[in-house]
Structures are given as structure tokens and as C-alpha cells.
Simulated assay, not measured.
Amino acid sequence: MLLYGVALITPMFLGSWTIGVFGLVMGWLGIFALEPYIAFPWIANFLYFGNLIFYKLNLKTKIVLSILTIICALFIIGLRELPENEGGRNSNVVVGIGFILWISSFVVLLIGQIKEKNKNV
């Protein structure tokens, strides 16, 4: 959760000062715009928090949910342009430190679940 929290206040992309909390708040627009590079990463947040909230789920189900979260999150790599202002100007972007921290929070959860599974075996 700490990695996720820090990702919310760091820039998501190189080439833009858009911080993670902006992506979290505005990501739903990707669904209506039919932009998979925005919509799937936004859905990854719900999968992540669902995984944390429903901790009593079967461990195998939680691992599958974590893998789906990571797959959805990786769609953001395909995003190459971000709107800069209302005038229609776009800036070229690539993933930045915020993305790395954000995806790291998903990977840490998956590693913890795999360790727990191996401990139970």
C-alpha cells in the first residue's frame, strides 16, 4: 500500500507532470472514449483493491486476480500521447517513476501471495 500511495504523488510519465492521482481520478474517461490503454490500467486499480479487501478469498483466486491486475496495468505502456490542454495539443510521453512504483505495488502483492501459497504447501 505504501508503494501505491507514493505512486499517487509522483509523475506517471516522462514528458508530462501528470501525477498518479490525476490518472486515478480521470481514468474512467478511457472507458467512454474506448481507449484500452487508459481503461484497462484504470480497471487494474479496482482489481488491486478488490484483492486487498476480499482477503478471505481462496489463495489461488487471489493469485489469478493479481496476475490479471498486472496484465491490465501493463496496457499503459502503449499510451504514447497525453492531452496537454483544452486546445487539443498533445505531449509525447513514456512511463515514468510513478508507473514503476504503481506496478511494483501489484508485483509485491503477487509475490506475497505466492510466498503464502508455498508456505501452505
Rank of each mutant, 00 (worst) to 15 (best):
I100Q: 07
I103A: 02
L2I: 13
F99N: 01
G96D: 02
V108H: 00
E86D: 12
A33S: 14
A44L: 00
A7W: 00
F40L: 08
F40W: 00
V121D: 14
C72S: 09
M26L: 13
G15D: 09
W28V: 06
L101N: 03
K62G: 09
R89T: 11
I97S: 04
G15W: 08
P36C: 06
S105A: 07
F75S: 08
N51T: 06
G87P: 08
V25L: 12
L65Y: 11
V108C: 04
V6E: 02
V93C: 10
M26E: 10
F99C: 05
E84F: 15
L68I: 13
R89C: 10
L34A: 12
S91Q: 15
L8R: 00
V25K: 10
G50V: 01
Y37S: 10
A33Q: 14
L3Y: 03
I114S: 00
N51K: 05
E81L: 15
I100G: 07
G23Q: 10
G5C: 05
T69W: 08
E84R: 15
I70A: 05
I111F: 06
G88L: 06
N90R: 12
E81W: 15
K56D: 15
I71C: 09
G27V: 00
K115G: 04
G87S: 10
M26W: 10
I43K: 04
G87R: 09
I43L: 10
G112Q: 06
F106Q: 04
L110H: 02
V108D: 01
L34Q: 11
I76E: 07
L109H: 14
L101K: 01
A73R: 01
A73E: 02
N92W: 14
I76K: 06
K119Q: 06
P83T: 03
L110C: 03
R80H: 14
V108Q: 05
L3G: 05
I31T: 08
P11G: 03
N90L: 14
V64K: 14
L2M: 13
K56E: 15
Y55K: 15
A44N: 02
V25H: 06
S16Y: 01
G96Y: 01
K115S: 04
F49E: 01
V95K: 00
S66W: 10
N118L: 14
I38R: 11
